[in-house]
Computed example of a mutant assay.
Amino acid sequence: MSDVRAQPSDPGPATPDTADWTWVLTRPCPDCGFAPEDVRPDGVSEILIDAGRRWAAVLDRDDVQVRPAPGVWSPLEYACHVRDVCDVMRGRVEQILAGGGETAQFANWDQDATAQEKAYWRADPAEVRRELEVAFAAAAAAFARPTREQWSWPGLRSNGSPFTVETLGRYFVHDILHHLWDVRG
């Protein structure tokens, strides 16, 4: 039986995050405690599977649709974002691997525009939970594919930030875990 919750009115956009978070690849995050050196390439999939379970629990909360402050996403909106991050990062690692070692050029992704276009605040928590399960499983499978040699294959974000499969995995793990910290998950 599905949990039916009232559909909130449009709370307006969240405050855009304009930070360049690539610094988390070289030093620990003082907020969530993420340490890049603790993430082994062959451990990314396991971390994603565990994080997926933790996100499912977040979606069971009674206050999942409540924004903690003006301009700050609710846990539901963060969960929608995480679902989409899983899809974007899965696509990027697949793009790098398909390139056979040539530098993959990633398309720009505007997370704030996506949140507005998809009306994250109106999402059904039960549906998002199902979608997150699929997205985390697909992302974990994609990050389980690279061989030792492929972890160093390159990709380039639209703003010029360079990645390898290995650093993309670390960046992705930080994003997922940091947002769990954001929602106290």
Rank of each mutant, 00 (worst) to 15 (best):
F143A: 00
S2T: 11
P68A: 08
G185C: 01
A51P: 07
G160T: 07
T147C: 07
V85R: 00
R90M: 10
G91M: 11
H81A: 10
V128E: 14
T22W: 12
V72W: 03
I47P: 00
A57F: 02
P30C: 02
P13D: 12
G91I: 02
R130S: 15
P30S: 04
P16C: 07
I49P: 00
R130N: 00
V173Q: 01
R61Y: 01
D20S: 05
D87R: 15
D110F: 09
I47H: 10
L168I: 04
G91W: 09
A126G: 11
V82C: 11
G43I: 07
V128R: 04
L59P: 05
P41D: 15
F163C: 02
R157T: 05
P8M: 00
V24F: 02
E149L: 07
R170K: 14
V134S: 11
S9H: 10
A135H: 07
H81L: 06
R145W: 06
P162V: 09
I47Y: 09
Q105I: 06
Q7R: 12
P16N: 03
G33N: 09
A14C: 12
D42Q: 14
M1C: 03
A115S: 14
Q116D: 10
G100Y: 11
F106D: 12
T147W: 13
G91D: 11
W151K: 04
A115R: 15
A140S: 08
F143G: 00
V93Q: 09
M89F: 15
P11W: 06
K118I: 00
L48C: 03
Q65T: 05
T164V: 09
E131S: 14
T167M: 07
S152L: 03
D124M: 00
L132F: 03
T15L: 11
V24E: 08
